[in-house]
Amino acid sequence: MPDKAHYGLLKGKKGIVFGPLDESSIGWQIALHAYREGAEVAISNIATALRFGNIQELAESCGNAPVIMCDASKDEDVDKAFKELSEKLGSVDFIVHSIGMSQNIRKQVPYEELNYEWFMKTLNVSGISLHRLVSFALKNDVLNDGGSILALSYIASQRNYWTYSDMGDAKSLLESIVRSYGPRLAKRGIRINTISQSPTYTKAGSGIPGFEKMHEYSDLMSPLGNASAEECAEYAVTLLSDLTRKVTMQNLFHDGGYSSMGATIPMIRLADEALHDEELAARVGLEDFSPSK
């Protein structure tokens, strides 16, 4: 990471980031930026992530941060994780949920033919796990008053993105949990939000069929271009800090303006050219999506 100004926004705070795997993951960047803004950080992921990721490297970069193994889809794992967190770090001021997976997407199962066992796992790991983290943090009294809970979402929670499949349903559930928990946490001054990030080249994101095209299209449609994982982390730090203590129950778009765009002139011209080029239209399958005449 190049040298950048740091402002001490999280000085004196403690927190835990669930889900970082390697340098490409947004959770990794959030943990690193939180540490560089003065926070003490703990890191958590499933046990197999130790073999396939670089979590120990991240822990060292974050001042030898404690690493807590936890499968956030299991009650007993989450309960144990927060007990361990309390022993190693004490109560915390923020929790970051950066967890998501879909076997249906990984196996490229069409949405109309979802494997329902995998579908339920998608919802559990990618959505319900947030509820589980919040609930067990409260039960173990490990989250301080005035704290911040943050989860990562995507615009497919609200709009259809064909190849995002059952992850769109999971992100919708994730955002609903945020709204449902918001008032229940507010009496302690705890806020809870999601960031809806641009398509980002993470291990999970890159596994989505046609991801490169999604990424390129989004970049062309965003006035400021796609936001990187590092830029997302910089934004996340503000939501973990006291500067945003009255922001809660929000899904905050961090996508270069993509979510507010209709179309750009170059993209309209490109679509028009494709629609009037029969060979090109056939090659990309436009006839399957052509509007009624």
Rank of each mutant, 00 (worst) to 15 (best):
P2A: 10
D3S: 15
K4C: 00
P20H: 05
L21M: 13
D22L: 00
S24T: 15
S25K: 04
Q29I: 01
Q29T: 06
I30H: 04
A31L: 03
L32F: 03
H33P: 06
A34F: 08
A39V: 05
I43F: 11
S44G: 10
N45G: 00
A49H: 11
G53I: 09
G53D: 07
N54F: 01
Q56A: 08
C62E: 05
S73F: 00
S73M: 02
V78Q: 01
K80S: 12
E84Q: 12
E84D: 13
L85D: 09
L85I: 08
E87S: 13
S91G: 05
D93T: 04
V96N: 07
M101A: 07
Q103G: 15
Q103C: 02
I105N: 09
Q108S: 14
E113G: 09
L114P: 11
Y116A: 11
E117K: 15
F119K: 12
M120Q: 13
S129N: 06
R132M: 14
V134D: 05
S135H: 15
F136K: 15
F136W: 15
F136S: 11
A137R: 11
D141T: 05
G147V: 10
L152Y: 14
Y154M: 06
A156F: 01
Y164L: 09
M167I: 14
K171E: 02
K171F: 00
V178F: 01
R179G: 00
R179I: 00
Y181V: 12
G182P: 00
R184A: 03
A186Y: 07
K187N: 09
G189A: 05
R191C: 02
N193M: 04
S196E: 10
S198R: 07
T200V: 06
S206H: 06
I208E: 02
F211K: 08
Y217T: 04
S218C: 13
D219V: 04
M221G: 04
S222P: 06
N226V: 06
A227P: 02
E234L: 12
E234R: 14
A236H: 01
L239E: 04
S241M: 03
D242H: 10
D242C: 05
L243F: 07
T244E: 04
T244D: 01
M249D: 08
F253D: 14
S260A: 12
G262Y: 15
M267N: 10
R269F: 01
A271F: 10
D272M: 12
D272K: 09
L275D: 14
H276L: 00
H276C: 10
R283K: 13
L286M: 15
D288S: 14
F289Q: 07
